[in-house]
Write a protein that binds this DNA or RNA. Structure first.
Lengths: 153, 153
DNA sequence: GCTTATTATATCGCATACGATATAATCGAG
DNA sequence: CTCGATTATATCGTATGCGATATAATAAGC
């Protein structure tokens, strides 16, 4: 993308890739908020719950890896979910460094209660499924490359 | 995208569009951090400065509109930039509700100092310019749709 | 000219998100 | 078996980011 602009244009907001990523992500989160808030959930908690609905129990580090978040972000977030009664946190007897996260009945119930959230969200957009799918696939490829670079630093 | 999955799959992390957006945005920000930190800048400050390098002086609300951030996010951010000496904040004599943001010499100098940041960043990725450009365009279209929905709430 | 509606920014409170650092547990090499 | 290296989570401090609310200024309608 560098070759397409002169030096001044390189710093224009409209020519950045970082900015539409940033803006789109926050707009999507704003869309989720009214659907999650009645269940007392934040967007980040919802992301973590999606990992657990697929793969519980899980270690904190596994959740961090799946969500591409630092463990020091995950830990306080999980503590709040625990306080809300949706998960439990226990040290693994096999390796006491590891904290295992399990879903409670309440946490599992949320899976049912929130099952229609994505449909409600994407249903209200003008994009076709094909367009959204294509965007998702491109983002996955992009993330793979970003992860390579970020890990090398 | 709703039609392609059954109900269970709808809540799998790998099938979400929101998640790769969220992850990609944060990974990009992590890439920027080592390039901005030596200048004492955060990523959000950098985004705001890009608006100002194009369009200064500007009102707070204009910056908020361009960045798609709330004014209550922008105001504390601008105060820190002011403290660092990169901008000034003054009430407009024409309309005392409005705060005008101007760049200082120091703020303008940063434009030169940070001119090679995007190239350093994207140069290290494996993606072609065409791929990054296509992703950017798709995100712009997506944002337009999101903004329509978010504003209707 | 007055009053209500609207607009612009500021403050409050809470939840991230991450770099840096600390603590404790486990692993592996010698 | 011991010790250094590595790993997992926790804490600290700072900067967002946003919903809700407050304050002040301007606009619009009568």
């Amino acid at each position: 993308m560098a070759q397409q602009y002169d030096r001044d244009d390189m710093l224009k907001l409209g020519n950045q890739l970082c900015f539409p990523l940033y803006a789109a992500s926050r707009l999507v989160q704003r869309m989720y908020h009214p659907l999650l808030e009645p269940h007392g959930l934040t967007y980040a908690q919802y992301i973590v719950l999606m990992v657990l609905w697929e793969d519980a129990p899980s270690a904190v580090s596994h959740i961090a890896e799946r969500t591409i978040l630092n463990t020091n972000t995950i830990t306080p977030l999980l503590k709040r979910l625990e306080q809300q009664g949706h998960i439990t946190r226990t040290r693994s007897p096999q390796d006491e460094r590891v904290v295992m996260i399990e879903l409670t009945d309440s946490g599992r119930d949320l899976h049912n209660e929130l099952g229609d959230v994505p449909e409600k969200l994407y249903g209200s957009l003008g994009s076709s499924d094909e367009e959204l799918w294509a965007l998702k696939q491109q983002l996955h490829r992009f993330i793979e490359q970003l992860q390579v670079v970020v890990e090398d630093e």
